[in-house]
Simulated scan of single mutants.
Amino acid sequence: MFLQIVSSGIAIGCIYALIALGFVLIYKASEVVNFAQGDLMMIGAFLVYSAVTHFHVPFIPAFLIAVIIMAVLGKGIDRLLLRPLVGEQAFALIMATIGLGILIRSIGGMIWGYDTFSFQAGITDRPVRMGSVALSSVHIWIIAVTLLLIVGLYYFFNRTKTGVSMEAASQNQLAAYLMGIGVKKVFSNIWAISAMVATVAGVLLTPLQFLNYNMGFVGLKAFPAAVLGGFGSIPGAIVGGIIIGVSESIAGVYLPEGFKEIFAWIILIGVLMIRPEGIFGIQERKRV
């Protein structure tokens, strides 16, 4: 039973990790904390659901169409909302993303309604036995897709010219600009990739939870995962998401009722008290 709890926690942790990855990508590039990441996940999941259910598009083409739409949406958010705020205080940028999340959630409710929908995202839930342990095929699919996406992103950021330019811009914007890298274009591409990753997370989440306009609140649980791993670390986002997911699953079984919903925030408070920079974060000291 413990192994089944852990496998369930790893699966939900992979989703937290993908959402946290969106947080980290945008923060690394522009030092903006995007609190609308969960709501972008909701929109992406609903786009796939609508294409499959209402327009009878096969799942794979529907998913690809949704990913493209979300990439365009991500670029649009950067160009129309974030770019005019360049140079403003961090508080203004944070409030802008919070307002954006509320706006996206409200539009999602107006378009798709406030009911809850069931959507299996093309995955048939069947038990898969590994020795004496019976695992859900949904959990296996989520873990496998997450691993493939992580490998793909690693290759993109380390082996392609566009990915290397994004990594350079995230390290030092001025130096990247002086080397001929279009920093504004890099920011738009980062927002596009973040929105695409959010779509993948939303599609993977729907077999575990029902599809609802409020499902974006799951993204808030990915925030502690990003902090735990180190807010500027991509590997930290993955590790932090899995730790939060497994801890949450164990807390839901072995701790009193209600602890599961708050356990991520308990971990967040503990990390901020003990190691604010996170597991993979670099501690910085300023001499005054």
Rank of each mutant, 00 (worst) to 15 (best):
A195V: 06
F117I: 10
G252S: 15
V239H: 01
A192R: 13
F46K: 06
L25I: 07
K221W: 02
G152C: 09
I150V: 15
W112N: 09
Q209T: 14
A169R: 08
L85W: 09
I77E: 05
M70Y: 04
E257C: 00
G180A: 13
P207T: 09
K221R: 10
S136V: 00
I269Y: 13
S30P: 00
G180F: 08
Q89C: 02
F263P: 04
I26R: 01
A176Q: 07
F259N: 10
A66D: 03
V86N: 11
V203L: 04
N172H: 11
P84W: 01
T206K: 08
I262L: 11
H56R: 12
I60R: 02
F23C: 04
N189R: 15
A251L: 06
L211H: 12
L228F: 14
V145E: 04
P58V: 05
I250V: 15
I282P: 01
T97K: 09
N189G: 07
L149K: 03
V203T: 14
W191H: 05
E248P: 07
I5Y: 15
V32N: 13
F46R: 05
E261K: 13
T206E: 11
A169D: 09
W191C: 06
M41F: 00
S30F: 11
I12Y: 06
A96E: 03
L82A: 08
I19S: 04
F157A: 11
A198H: 02
F59T: 04
F2I: 15
G219K: 01
A225H: 06
G281T: 02
K185F: 09
K161S: 14
A264D: 09
S136H: 04
N189C: 11
K161M: 14
A176F: 08
F59G: 01
Y16I: 05
R105P: 01
I69M: 13
F231V: 06
W265I: 12
W112Y: 15
M1L: 14
V145S: 04
I267Y: 12
I94D: 00
